Amino acid sequence: MKLESLIGEPWADYGLIDSGHGRKLERYGRYRFIRPEPQAMWAPANAEWQADGEFVPGSDEDGGGRWTFNRPTPRDGWPLAWDDVRFTAQTTPFRHLGFFPDMAPVWGWMREQVAGTDAPECMNLFGYTGVGTLAMAGEKTAARMVHVDASKKSVEAARANARLSGLDSAPVRWIIDDAAKFVAREVRRGRRYDGILLDPPKYGRGPEGEVWRLEEDLAPLVANCRQLLDADSRFLFLTVYAVRMSALAIGELLRQLFADLPGTVEAGELGVREEARGLVLPTAIWARWHR
């Protein structure tokens, strides 16, 4: 299987300014932040970085750490936009800023897959704060969306982003549930979708204490997602941030599960282009099936 790259380019409200020595400097609207980035093994373009805040990781490689600030930033967040989607960026305890900018090329790709489809119905699993959901629910695609996340706080943030985008009345079902359990119920109901986006974490817990472990639970979940798609469906897109997995491995998983459907299976790396030198910082691996 040939590996491909999906590269996120800078846009008005986001850019990877510089990277190196295990860190990255990014702009989120008018604010600049430094975050850890193990993939940035090279030297940065500039020795001195000026930032409004920096996330200092803890000693535990699986998490921990804190934000330090050089200048005041809005603790309740500030509005940003990608294309016609508006959302709130905010420094979180998990080092993220309320959305994943490297997913921008995926949002655009999903729109392309359902172009010309009348009122497509798609699902966003592990939907977080909903930027991907809203990218599909807006006027350019007008998809009927099912947004699933186990975190009530994340779903509330996604609904707030829908209001910010003027999409509070868009046909979106906001589901607070364990992703695997929800998909299994959808299979039993005989439901079908035109497209599915999966962006699972390495580890997580459902609203009733369900435990998600990527290495153990991913294959059964993707197998159930396959049951929600048919020969008229348009896509499934899977991203994985766990570095112990391979793009070739998840590509083969999809190749086997989708062997009975027409279409194409591809796999590769997700990355963001640095503004300073144009080099690409890898962020995740992905696999996809599409017609």
Rank of each mutant, 00 (worst) to 15 (best):
S5T: 04
L6E: 00
G8V: 12
Y14A: 08
I17C: 05
G22F: 02
K24A: 08
R30C: 02
A40K: 06
M41N: 10
A43N: 08
A45H: 12
A45M: 07
N46G: 01
Q50L: 13
V56I: 15
G64I: 08
G64Q: 07
F69D: 01
T73A: 14
G77Q: 03
A89F: 03
T91M: 13
P93Y: 13
G98M: 14
F99K: 01
W109I: 11
E112Q: 15
E112D: 15
V114I: 12
A115D: 08
E121S: 05
N124W: 01
A135T: 10
E139P: 08
T141V: 15
A142Y: 01
A143T: 05
R144E: 05
M145G: 02
V148Y: 00
D149G: 07
E156I: 05
A160Y: 00
D178K: 09
A179P: 00
A180L: 14
A180W: 10
Y203H: 04
R205C: 04
E208H: 12
E208Q: 15
W212P: 01
R213A: 06
E215G: 05
P220L: 00
L221D: 05
V222S: 02
A223S: 08
N224W: 01
N224K: 10
R226G: 09
L229N: 06
L229T: 09
L229V: 11
D230C: 12
L238A: 11
T239M: 04
V240A: 04
Y241H: 08
Y241M: 05
A242M: 03
A247V: 02
L248W: 10
R255T: 14
A259W: 12
D260F: 12
P262A: 14
G268V: 11
E269C: 08
E269F: 12
V272W: 07
E275G: 03
L279N: 03
L281V: 04
A287C: 06
H290Y: 15
